[in-house]
Amino acid sequence: MTLSPDDVRDVLRALDSSGLDELHLELSDFTLTVRRHGTSGWTAEQQVLRTPSVEQATTAPAGAAERPRHRAADHDGAVAVRPPLPGTFYRAPQPGAPPFVDVGDDVDEDTVVGIVETMKMMTPVHAGVRGTVVEFRTDNGELADTEAVLLLVEPAPGSSGEDGTGGDGDGAGR
């Protein structure tokens, strides 16, 4: 069981008339701590501890097929482009549209090479380096954390070859 907001309110009403400033309740599957904060009111901190047991829908679609892992090709000196935020990586501005860039394309620091969707917000990914796209390491529609390598860029002679992240553009809402 857990306490409903109404239950918590009843507890507070009882405490209000008592002199108590704090109450800690510990049950098998939840804990609750309520605290008085002078005249500004009360706070509640609740923790539901149960572990849900998950049923499978009888005809539920199977889990996403394991995507083929990319061959870690040998690209010595290539710069890894990583997403500025964790999210779903898209190679094109919208489904069906041509990709922002492809293997073999030349890019500079500000070239948009993809977008990541994080919590419904779209953030452009910039190459961050001048050079040539040599490989994609993350598929279109794949989730990428900020450590993930989206693609590799072979830096043009004379440009900095530091491992960079894909710029922090102003997120464009969609």
């Binding site: 009360w42 706070t43 901190e45 964790p86």
Partner: peptide, 16 residues
């Protein structure tokens, strides 16, 4: 800027 990730602690106001 979106901020997904782990929430460490949640303390909420309560009362009438």
């Amino acid at each position: 800027r979106p901020s997904p990730g782990r929430v460490d602690r949640v303390v909420l106001p309560a009362g009438d």
